[in-house]
Simulated scan of single mutants.
Amino acid sequence: ADEHNRLLTFNRSAVLITGYALARVLGKPAIEVLQLPPEFSEHLDEDLLRARSKRIDLPFRRADGDHINLGLSVAQLPLPDGRRGYLYTFQDVTDLKQLERDAQLQKRLAAVGEMAAGIAHEIRNPLASMSGSMQILRQELTLSSDQAQLMDIVLRESERLNDTIRSFLAYARPQRFERQRLDLPGVLQDTATLLRNSHELGESHIIEVPVGPGEVFVEADENQVRQIVWNLATNGLRAMSKGGTLTLSAAPDPDHPGGAVLTVTDQGVGIAADDLEGIFEPFRGSFGKGSGLGLSIVYRLVSDYNAAIDVQSQPGRGTTFRVTFPPAPERRASRAS
């Protein structure tokens, strides 16, 4: 950029990263093209007098609308006519930022898992004693209708608390794998049947499981895959308090032969962009039901399979979770040979 911070050159790598053609950016302010925040550029000259360069990581919206992360540095550059301009160097650090976020999330999940296991064990034994005693009293005492109703409430709430403890333990315990060749559309059909007969389903809910062409298999533990589908599906139903359609689908991964893609789509309230990064953290539930660990358990199970989970959401229109399972190890080996 020249002394007025207008772009003089824009190399091929810059075009590929930003998506902006050379003719579109030449002569324009670098601050505008590179979408630099005002606090970064406000005292740029003074900052470059104190240091050789200045660096920033920032979100960037490409010409095609995609959002990426840039790692950018700027330094002063002597120009051929003796004036001083600016040299901007930057790279796409989106994948690196995602790895950093994943690593931080894994640390938090591990710490919360240890805490959850300790708390759950401390609560479970006295809860079992209390629940058992209440059941015996319920059977042996002569109670009025009001007393019987209160007793039933206590027993029901005890069972709900026990369900929460089971979620803690399922989240905290190391997962055991019993891999088998699993028919993914069959799992979706079974889960849909269970959901249609569960208390999670409202009168205005519709569950669809479209049947795609061909077979879709994954090498995985059946119970764990069922838990992934169940947690994502119940989350979708809870997001549709006023009703809507929940769609469960499975398809081969077009980018990795032998892989599979599981998709769960709802027409619920959606998730704000600022909240998307934290949805897999423990106790982030927002529907007033459950333990707040459902999506955290999904994330842990997906990570255990070296799979990937992607979330796309529009507030007021709904959310789509997409889990991509890698090809089975033996299939990868056979292709390599």
Rank of each mutant, 00 (worst) to 15 (best):
residue 2 D to R: 04
residue 3 E to C: 05
residue 7 L to S: 05
residue 9 T to Q: 11
residue 23 A to H: 13
residue 23 A to K: 12
residue 36 L to N: 03
residue 38 P to H: 03
residue 38 P to E: 12
residue 43 H to S: 14
residue 43 H to I: 09
residue 48 L to N: 01
residue 58 L to H: 13
residue 62 R to F: 09
residue 64 D to M: 08
residue 64 D to I: 06
residue 66 D to C: 04
residue 70 L to Y: 04
residue 85 G to M: 00
residue 91 Q to P: 00
residue 93 V to C: 01
residue 101 R to S: 09
residue 101 R to Q: 11
residue 109 L to S: 06
residue 116 A to T: 09
residue 120 A to D: 11
residue 125 N to I: 14
residue 129 S to A: 11
residue 132 G to M: 01
residue 135 Q to T: 06
residue 136 I to A: 09
residue 146 D to R: 14
residue 148 A to R: 15
residue 150 L to K: 06
residue 152 D to L: 09
residue 155 L to H: 04
residue 159 E to N: 07
residue 166 R to H: 10
residue 167 S to Y: 08
residue 180 Q to M: 13
residue 187 V to N: 01
residue 193 T to A: 15
residue 194 L to F: 07
residue 196 R to V: 01
residue 196 R to Q: 13
residue 198 S to N: 08
residue 200 E to P: 03
residue 207 I to C: 03
residue 208 E to H: 02
residue 208 E to N: 10
residue 212 G to V: 06
residue 218 V to N: 03
residue 224 Q to K: 02
residue 236 G to I: 02
residue 237 L to M: 10
residue 241 S to F: 09
residue 241 S to G: 00
residue 246 L to M: 05
residue 246 L to F: 04
residue 248 L to F: 11
residue 252 P to S: 07
residue 261 V to E: 12
residue 261 V to K: 07
residue 263 T to D: 07
residue 264 V to T: 12
residue 268 G to K: 05
residue 275 D to Q: 13
residue 276 L to D: 05
residue 302 V to H: 12
residue 307 A to R: 02
residue 312 Q to I: 06
residue 314 Q to M: 08
residue 318 G to M: 00
residue 321 F to I: 01
residue 330 E to N: 11
residue 333 A to P: 02
